[in-house]
């Protein structure tokens, strides 16, 4: 289909009776939509601070954090949801920030590694990773720590896992539960045993 700008549909306001597209979207011109970047605005709460972003609709939450907001603690590993290096906490839940668009997070409350603690005031999970040597190269560590903090919350909230022996009993704060729940965070240095020790120590301290 050959498309010119003149073929764009200009439509009025959305009414209850008929569903209409806003004027920046062409009804017929799918090729035109794809021909140039499309901008959108979104307000997101990042580590307790409201940030107004004006970005390409394609921007993932991960790229918005790193490239637009210079919060480079969150890492890009595989960029396909397989490694967990990009894990952040959105509205209390850990997610892969690479597999979600920034524009889908209007009003979301995001916590990144920068929001958990600072070098002067470490989060207990950060302190435990240091104490137990829960890393070697450190690239997966921000994601591991965000994931670990959320994992302890999930167990406390009674959310079952594949490792839970019973679906009706509350899950326990034990190593087998933590291992299963951390399977979405890959560490190619292989610091897993120390990571489990670090998380277990925080779990015991908070139990």
């Amino acid at each position: 289909m050959t498309i010119s700008r003149r073929t764009f549909l200009i439509v009025g306001a959305v009414t209850a009776a008929s569903v209409a597209l806003p004027p920046f979207i062409s009804a017929q011109a799918s090729a035109a939509n794809a021909a140039r970047p499309n901008k959108a605005t979104v307000k997101i709460w990042i580590n307790g601070e409201q940030r107004d972003l004006d970005l390409d609709t394609r921007t993932t939450l991960l790229d918005a954090l790193r490239e637009n907001l210079q919060l480079t603690g969150t890492k890009k590993g595989c960029d396909h949801g397989q490694c967990g290096a990009c894990t952040v906490i959105a509205n209390g839940r850990r997610i892969n920030s690479c597999l979600t668009l920034a524009v889908m997070h209007e009003g979301s409350k995001i916590t990144t590694i920068e929001g958990l603690g600072t070098p002067q005031k470490l989060h207990p999970m950060q302190a435990a990773f240091i104490k137990h040597d829960g890393y070697q190269c450190g690239y997966c560590t921000p994601g591991q720590i965000c994931s670990a903090v959320a994992v302890l919350g999930e167990i406390r909230d009674g959310i079952p896992s594949h490792a839970s022996p019973s679906l009706t009993e509350p899950p326990k704060l034990i190593a087998s539960e933590i291992q299963e729940r951390m399977s979405g965070n890959i560490c190619r240095c292989g610091a897993y045993s120390n990571i489990i020790e670090a998380i277990s120590e925080v779990a015991e301290a908070s139990a």
């Binding site: 949801g81 997610i95 994931s147 079952p160 594949h162 951390m182 399977s183 979405g184």
Partner: peptide
């Protein structure tokens, strides 16, 4: 995690928990 699903449709809870990762299941 829904209590009704865990009690009466355990197969569904178990299948879901066997899939993907915690991060992905949250979304």
């Amino acid at each position: 995690a829904d209590p009704r699903v865990r009690k009466d449709y355990g197969l569904l809870s178990r299948a879901l928990l066997a899939g993907a990762s915690g991060q992905l299941r949250n979304v």
